[in-house]
Amino acid sequence: MHSETIIQVNGLTKRFGDFTAVNEITFKVDKGEIFGFLGANGAGKTTAIKMLIGLSKPTKGSGKVAGFDIEKQAEHVKKNIGYMSQKFSLYDDLTPKENIRFYGGIYGLSRNEIKTKTKEILEELDLKSVANKTVVSLPLGWKQRLAFAISMVHDPDIVFLDEPTGGVDPKVRREFWETIYQASEKGRTVFVTTHYMDEAEYCDRVSIMVAGKIEALDTPNNLKQQFNATSMDEVFLKLAR
């Protein structure tokens, strides 16, 4: 069904001194997939994601993201990906409009493109009423959706989300996942890390990291069968133990 590989990783490893944070992980993600990247706290998810997006140099192994080598062509990779981190990437003292303009600007969009993008995002997220208020006054859920929209301001092929739904209530989380689906429907690949196992069920395929290694990788249904479990929660607990 899926043909084009957009992320390919071979034996990717990151060591900090004696500690191996990511231990020879190998996997593939196809274009258009929603790929869930699961693992307990400290399992190495964030380190792995940082290597993929060019923020961290791999100690060993290789990888290609959007057709570019993550080691040698990190800056090319950056042009073709979006990233939203656990920490908020928006400037609190700027308005939504100014945030969009700034990030659009440094991705090299023209003033006109920025104008249309701004309109699009504000309309889609229903943020018009607060377009000129500073971000600090927005509710967390709005900020997250705005951050997500801004991470895609330059229409990247892939968007990496590092625990995007931390700290919000189930309703807001549900809404956020709807926006993820919308992005996916447009043909965008979504690479998402999460703690919430119900969110894992929403993904096309899921990998589970334990102590720096990928211990399982398949569709949620196959994983449940494989581990003889009724929910992803159970699968996770069986693996993490």
């Binding site: 923020l55 800056e75 920490k87 990437s89």
Partner: peptide, 17 residues
Amino acid sequence: EIGTIEQINVTPIKKWQ
């Protein structure tokens, strides 16, 4: 400290810029 630098670092911005 706020974490915005990480976001800037994943953009193709040049260091001198």
